[in-house]
Simulated assay, not measured.
Amino acid sequence: MTPTTLLCLSLALLTTTCVGQDQISLNPTRPTIANAATIQDKGVLQVETGYDAYPDNPPGNQQTVDTNLTFAALEKLRLDLTWSAFNHEHDDSGTTNGIGTITLGGKYVLHKEDYHRPAPGVAFQYELELPTASQTDLNNLGQQFTVLINHHYGKQGDLDIIANGSIVQANCQQKCNYGGQQSFAVSYHLQAQTRLYAEVFGQNVSQSNTPPGTYVFTGFYRQVSSFFGFDGGLRFGVSNHSSTYGTTIGLVFGKRMYPESAKN
């Protein structure tokens, strides 16, 4: 079964059974690079798909269509499966098109956030990248370990401060490259269903959908219902070797896999 076929089946499963379901809490990982130290409700399957493009030199034209499946197996544990359904790279060495690598991992919430307490939420995330791409130039073997921190401020928790830091090991099928990724984001709830984002992030090892460099980002997330939302935004490179600009747009779907009475 191809990744595209699996995505279509997942979306069909999520969208055909939403009517009459209980309300669920989605926790999108997009549009920012920074990720909150929270997960969706226990028992909820979440599917995100998005398009990311960095069309300007340096370092070259890079475009990806990524898909992310997450399942909250426990109240504090989320299991992740991510792949690049399509990956396009063009630089001085040539052009490469194909399916990108698959990433397996998960997130564990060490300390759950409480709006009424000063201590932030803390979580750890691990990702193992497997060399399963359709083109040799797109294959990669590596791993990433991330610490995630966030806290909401204000009477209604409208302002969310998010900080991430990670260690990256990449290209290990040849010789491992080591690097890191740091990100700081601010989210403001313009309405109950709409969030605005601002972010600064940097990395010195290329990720599946982001070239190396330092960037600033502005974007939004709109939750249409408890089962569906969409996001987007623009990134601008501010370091010498980063891509001049980039754009992202995505969709998120959610479905509870067993009755709400079985959550606890």
Rank of each mutant, 00 (worst) to 15 (best):
D66W: 04
V65P: 02
Q125T: 10
L74G: 05
N68K: 09
A85R: 04
F86S: 10
G105Y: 05
T82E: 06
T101R: 07
G105H: 06
V109M: 13
K155A: 02
T67S: 10
L148A: 08
G180Q: 06
G142M: 00
T146Q: 11
K76P: 02
R195M: 06
L79F: 01
A123V: 14
K107L: 11
V65S: 03
V109Y: 12
Q169G: 12
F145I: 05
L130F: 04
D80P: 01
T146F: 15
G105E: 02
F86G: 06
L81R: 05
R117N: 06
Q181K: 12
F86N: 12
G165N: 14
Y197I: 01
L190T: 12
P120C: 02
Y178M: 14
D80T: 01
T146I: 11
H90C: 06
I161K: 14
N164I: 02
G105Q: 09
Q173D: 14
V186I: 15
T95E: 07
S187G: 10
I102F: 13
F184Q: 01
Q144G: 05
R195S: 15
W83T: 11
T64W: 00
Q174F: 15
Q63E: 08
P131F: 03
A192R: 15
D114V: 14
Q173L: 10
N150P: 11
Q174T: 13
E127H: 12
N87R: 15
N97F: 05
G157I: 06
S93F: 03
F124D: 02
I149Y: 13
G142Y: 01
T82R: 08
H189N: 14
E127I: 06
N177P: 04
H151S: 05
E75R: 07
L81D: 01
